[in-house]
Nucleic acid binder design. Structure first.
Length: 489
DNA sequence: TCTAGGCATGGGTGCCTATATCT
DNA sequence: AGATATAGGCACCCATGCCT
């Protein structure tokens, strides 16, 4: 998806070409003074209109399909939150199934336990397969008939033969009849299977393919959101035990799968919620897939096989290279929108060299050079902008966070900044806390930039995150003195 | 009103202690 | 000598954005 929601980023995401020369919003007022300036503004604006149109054309098929599926008008469905899309779909189902639609009632928020995340084995691994459960939560909900109308309240006496009992939490669900969620989910899964079947044999360029592909994507999105919906406090069909039981069965399923995988000698490197990373062995993986199908009634499939994959000690962060040379970076700074582009670019570079060569040596060399460049200020200013979202009205913040201080400065100058806006800021030279040295990026001059901040607090941490695995530290990345100079001392 | 919980991370905040400075 | 100010270290919390 798109980290910073600019039209430029949207254009590059959909593969549209930007034709007009870029203008800074802050310069437009000045350009308006001359006829040449106004011509440039016109060209710029017309180009942006064209990009919006192209983006619309890219989206419209999916939008229509989603609108049709969940029964929300096209102009609403784009802005509607996922929860409301699911709810609207369920309301449509309730009519089909002869169910009454419950009223929204206020309930106290109480969190519940979620998924299992394994500690990764840090280091560089080769030939690692990622095995994923296909739609784990929807399938668990269907398998155990998890639904508001099959839930048996505690204290109600019932034959244990007639219910499924969730592990750890003990919630009970009737085996018969089919619950509302089971029916709604089955309808979605069957519809998607049918659409995908019709896709086979069609040319990806044909209009029919585009429509059907958009349809199956829309169905998938709604299917995968049903579990989250069930645990959403604002949902009409909210039942905490449903969400709690679903994750409990998910944990059990993953645990059993890991246990069996180990028992047949598969080496497990990592796992998260519904996936396990194992050292690839075709026969053993085949055996595991068969086991899960037979004993759990669920489907796992190899999602990717990494030629090399790098884990740090942290969960949810890794980078791997596929046999075609493509690199996946997950969770690391390089894919986070709240790190400056210079840090992200240099981390990407380091990761790429490590994964391609299988050793950190060349990466360290490269990193030293790139870090020296930042230290010397030889880096485009744009690459030093840090973006962070404002999530609430400014006066509600309890701490003087840098991005909030930047937002305050913008507001003082007449800008409107509120929840949902992203603030781009930079750190300038000076003393005191960070919030005294933060400025909205539009007003920062090159000579004021605190390059040492960027080296110490952005580039170094991002690079070391990856290189620490190989026992490199901060000192080893500082530019090394020449041997000739050393002799002078 | 804007699906869920799990997780890493940076920076602010507030407390404690050691030391410096003042009365 | 005792009171007060200041700096540094530490634990904790706030805030954000990612992963599944």
């Amino acid at each position: 998806d798109i980290k910073i929601k600019t039209l430029e980023n949207l254009a590059s995401y959909i593969g549209a070409e930007i034709k007009a020369e870029p203008l800074e919003e802050t310069d437009i007022a000045a350009l308006w003074a001359t006829s040449e300036g106004r011509r440039r503004v016109l060209e710029y604006s017309a180009d942006r209109c064209r990009l919006v149109m192209e983006a619309f054309e890219e989206f419209i098929e999916y939008g229509c399909q989603l609108s049709n599926l969940v029964c929300i008008p096209l102009d609403h469905v784009c802005a509607a939150a996922v929860g409301f899309r699911v709810e609207s779909y369920l309301m449509k189902c309730s009519r089909l199934f002869g169910e009454l639609i419950p009223k929204r009632v206020e309930k106290p928020y109480r969190p519940y336990a979620g998924a299992i995340v394994l500690n990764p084995k840090p280091g560089l691994h080769e030939n690692i397969a990622v095995l994923d459960f296909r739609s784990m939560y929807p399938n668990i909900m269907m398998k155990y008939n998890v639904s508001p109308d099959t839930y048996v309240e505690p204290g109600v006496e019932i034959d244990p033969e007639d219910v499924y009992v969730a592990p750890e939490v003990g919630h009970r669900f009737l085996k018969k009849p089919d619950g509302f969620y089971r029916e709604a989910l089955r309808r979605l899964l069957e519809a998607r299977a049918e659409v995908r079947q019709r896709l086979e044999g069609l040319s990806p360029e044909s209009a029919e393919y585009r429509v059907l592909d958009a349809r199956q994507k829309a169905i998938k999105v709604v299917t995968n959101a049903v579990y989250g919906y069930a645990g959403w406090i604002g949902a009409r069909w909210y039942r905490r035990p449903i969400a709690e039981a679903t994750t409990a069965w998910g944990r059990e399923t993953l645990r059993k799968t890991i246990e069996y995988a180990r028992s047949i000698g598969l080496d497990i490197i990592y796992g998260d919620t519904d996936s396990i990373f194992v050292r690839y062995n075709e026969d053993k993986v085949e055996k595991l897939i068969r086991y899960v199908a037979e004993h759990e009634g669920l489907e796992i499939k190899p999602d990717a096989i990494y030629v090399r994959i790098l884990f740090t000690e942290a969960k949810k962060r890794y980078a791997g290279i596929l046999s075609d040379g493509r690199i996946d970076i997950v969770g690391l700074e390089a894919v986070r929108g709240d790190w400056c582009e210079a840090a992200r670019r240099i981390q990407r570079e380091v990761v790429k060299i490590i994964l391609e060569t299988g050793s950190p040596d060349k990466a360290v060399e490269k990193a030293r050079g790139l870090i020296a460049e930042v230290k010397a200020g030889k880096v485009p200013l744009r690459e030093l902008v840090i973006w962070k979202a404002i999530t609430r009205p400014i006066e509600e913040y309890k701490v003087r966070a840098p991005h909030v201080e930047a937002a305050k400065r913008l507001i003082k100058m007449g800008w409107e900044v509120g929840p949902g806006d992203k603030v781009g800021f930079m750190i300038v030279k000076g003393s005191g806390k960070l919030y005294d040295r933060v400025r909205p990026y539009q007003f920062v001059k090159r000579e004021d930039v605190d390059y040492s901040y960027y080296v110490e607090n952005q580039v170094m941490p991002a690079v070391l995150r990856v290189l620490r695995v190989f026992d490199y530290d901060r000192e080893s990345l500082e530019t090394v003195r020449q041997r000739g100079q050393m002799r002078l001392f």
